[in-house]
Each structure stands twice: as structure tokens, then as C-alpha cells.
Design a protein around this nucleic acid. Structure first.
Lengths: 218, 218
DNA sequence: AAGTAGTTTGAACGAGCGTTCAATTTCAAG
DNA sequence: CTTGAAATTGAACGCTCGTTCAAACTACTT
């Protein structure tokens, strides 16, 4: 069984599903949809206050739910954090697959990685920083997250190495350079304001321009 | 009264000072020295576990103290966090002053900023990320920290603008570029391992090379 | 209308942690 | 040795928050 799409499906309970509140469609997996709602609320709250600073009540209230209700959808708070990470990592793994299977050149691949990464963080995860509060995860969950994160890191390094081999990029330590690139991007949620002067499109393009320019052969 | 060196001196209590434990010199401000010890321990703990994840007891135990004793040196936990930020910002403001008063060219100034910033974070603050857990600060403290952080941000942008005006750097949005540079550097504590293959010297130099190369006029 | 599984709620419990404080210890000075 | 201020301690308090659960509610099925 793959780890892809690890968020919604959840260990399903028996029988049909209902709606949490205020909607009335008899859709078979509204349970899944509610789980995703919770994840989004949790992600926003975790980003603002950190895992330990955020309370289960805050996550619930943002959805007009009571905190006890969240335990119908998730085992506990840590489980919610883990699901947030899996959700984000699903997006990242999709991106890596896409890029690896494309026949693009190294610099095109890198641009695609950076641009899509920025869009994913800002638009889809609306500002949820990846790889946050890892220390709050259980050892087993932590291991899972790190394995997948490492796959992403490795993909970026590989593209850098390819570019260097092809002479498009200046020689250098791919590991260090990958950290620099990912750091610049992962830091965006700290200062990004959706109502600010820069759109996510702007940021994605400018960051890609700058971060790739620093690599090019003189 | 300046805001520089805002950490140790503390609102001094009356009379002479003693030693916290196991030393016996009648030095007048061992109180200050103990305060710095606490800040270092707190910084390490906050970095590992986050402000809310870290307990006062953990901070104390790392110094072979009991938690109640910390309240002899600091008003409360939030006060410790604030002092950590002030300590870090003191270092940063010193750096800004140095660079602004130097007669260096823009690219030299930027290199100096990046290299010293990396060294400060890794060597002096041993991996304490700056601008962390700001949301845990009281409104008044938060304001103070943000004002000083902004001064640093502005200094970096100014150097970028100077470089563009001088034609050393390609035209671009100094704000966005400054965020990219500071993000790459601020992210370092997340992956840096003192026992790892890269020394802080390595990292500082390579990062400066890369981050400045992306700015240069073609 | 009654039955039933899915979902929501409110209240309660219990643990952990920040904070306080009176009592105690340490240590230099007289 | 005695004194007294500085420093430390251990215990206690109170509050917050994660978690549990029985009861109530909802809406589809028969």
C-alpha cells in the first residue's frame, strides 16, 4: 500500500456517513471532507501559535465545532499534526513525481520545483510552513515524516547535481545549496501577507529567478 | 539609556550579590552571569521544543537549578523569552552599526552581513533561530522586538538598493530579495549539526557566495 | 411513526505546568 | 561565632488544556 494521499481516508468506521453541521447532502464520505476541514483549521492555528501554543478548542471553534467533536475524527491532537504533515507531503511527493518524469532540463526542473513549491505553500496550504513542530510528533510518526521529507530534499539535490554535470550550474555542494533554496522558500510564510503588495505568483517567479541565477555558470 | 546590551544588567536588587551555586567569589554581578546562563539554557530549550513546548523546569534542570529559582532572576517565562530576543538583537544591531559605518562597497557590505549573521547564529547563539515564537511575547515586548528586527531588515534592503544603484547588482525588489536571503540564513539552525560535515565557516562563506551571485549584474 | 447508525454536545476528570512563598541554606563581613 | 542579606529549595496552589464519555440530536430507512 502506498503512502500517497494519506490524509482524508482515515481508518473508516462502519456504516454510512452524515454531515457535521449545517449542510445536508447525503454524500458517502463527508467524514473525509470534515477531516480536511479540520486539517485546514489546524494548519492555520498551528502556524499562528505553534503546536503547543494552539489549543484543540481554537481549532474546533474556527469551524464552529466543539472540541470534543474533533475526537470523533482524530485520535488526538498529535494525530492531527501528523495528518497535516502527511497532507503537505502528499502535495510535495506529487510534485517530485511530476518533475522527475518530465523531460525538462535541470534548470527548468528546478524552476518548476521552486514555483510549484511556493504555490503549494501559499495557495493550497495558505501559509502553513512545512516541517514545523516536528519534535511534537511521536517517534513513529516522526520517522515517517522525515523519510518523506528526505525524499524531497534528495530530489532537489539531484536536480542541482544534474545541472552541474550538464554545465548549466556552477560547481558547488548540492546539499548546502539545496538547504539555502529550501530555507528561503520555507521562510516565506513568516512574512507573507495575502493582502500585501506581492501575489504568490510574483513571489514564486522572483524567487525562482533569484535562486536559479545564483547557480548559473558565469 | 540605550537599548543596547539589554540582557544581563536586569533591574538590580539592593545590596551585594552572591553566587548561585558551587562557586564562591564575591563578585558584584554574578547575578548577571547567572542570568546569561539561564538565557543560554532557555535558548537551547526553546529551539528544541518551542516556547510552549519547553518547560521552566527543563530550562532550570539543564543548569542544575530548581525551577522556582529562575523566578529570582526573571519575572516569568515570557520575560526569559523576551530577554533571549533582546540578547540576539543586540548582536544584530552591533553588526548593523559596524557595517553601516564601514566604507565598504555594497557587495562587500552584504557579504559581511551574511557571514557575520551566520556566525552569530551558529557560534554565539549556537543554533537559536531568531524571530522565533514571537506570538508568545506580550504586546509591549513584541513591539520592541519588531522595531529592532525591522531595523535589521531595512539595513539589508538598503545595502541591496545601494548595490543596484551602483550597478553591481541586477535591478529587482530589495524587499523580496532581502526576505529570500534572510530566509535562507534563518533556516540554517533547522538542519545544522555542529558535528556535521560543514563548519560554520564553510556555511557562512558558501551561503554568501551563492546569495550574492544571484544578485550580480550578468 | 419508530428504529437506528452517525454525529454532536456538555460536562467532567486528571495531568502538567507556571507561579508563589515561607522556610532554609550559603557565605562574606563584623 | 554571630549576623544578615543573597540565593536556593520544596511544597503547594490554581489554572489551562487534552481527553473521555454518556446523553442528546439528526436524518435516513423501513
Amino acid at each position: 500500500m502506498g503512502t500517497r494521499q494519506s490524509i482524508p481516508p482515515a481508518p473508516q468506521q462502519a456504516g454510512r456517513r452524515r454531515r457535521p453541521r449545517a449542510r445536508r447532502v447525503p454524500n458517502p464520505d463527508l467524514r473525509t471532507s470534515t477531516r480536511v476541514d479540520i486539517l485546514h483549521s489546524a494548519a492555520r492555528t498551528f502556524r499562528r501559535l505553534g503546536y503547543h501554543g494552539a489549543t484543540v478548542e481554537q481549532i474546533a471553534n474556527a469551524l464552529h465545532m466543539k472540541k470534543g467533536n474533533l475526537y470523533y475524527y482524530f485520535k488526538n491532537k498529535e494525530d492531527i499534526l501528523f495528518a497535516c504533515h502527511q497532507y503537505s507531503l502528499d502535495r510535495l511527493m506529487e510534485l517530485v513525481d511530476q518533475v522527475e518524469q518530465s523531460g525538462l532540463t535541470a534548470d527548468q526542473k528546478l524552476r518548476r520545483l521552486i514555483v510549484s513549491f511556493v504555490h503549494t505553500i501559499l495557495d493550497e496550504l495558505h501559509g502553513t510552513a512545512l516541517f514545523l513542530d516536528l519534535e511534537a510528533l511521536s517517534p513513529a510518526h516522526l520517522k515517517t515524516v522525515i523519510v518523506r521529507r528526505d525524499r524531497f530534499d534528495r530530489a532537489v539535490r539531484q536536480v542541482l547535481q544534474q545541472g552541474m554535470d550538464a554545465g548549466v550550474f556552477r560547481p558547488g555542494d548540492p546539499k548546502l545549496l539545496a538547504f539555502a533554496i529550501l530555507g528561503a522558500v520555507n521562510w516565506i510564510p513568516r512574512w507573507y501577507a495575502p493582502a500585501g503588495p506581492s501575489t504568490s505568483q510574483d513571489i514564486a517567479d522572483r524567487f525562482a529567478d533569484y535562486l536559479i541565477a545564483g547557480l548559473r555558470q558565469a
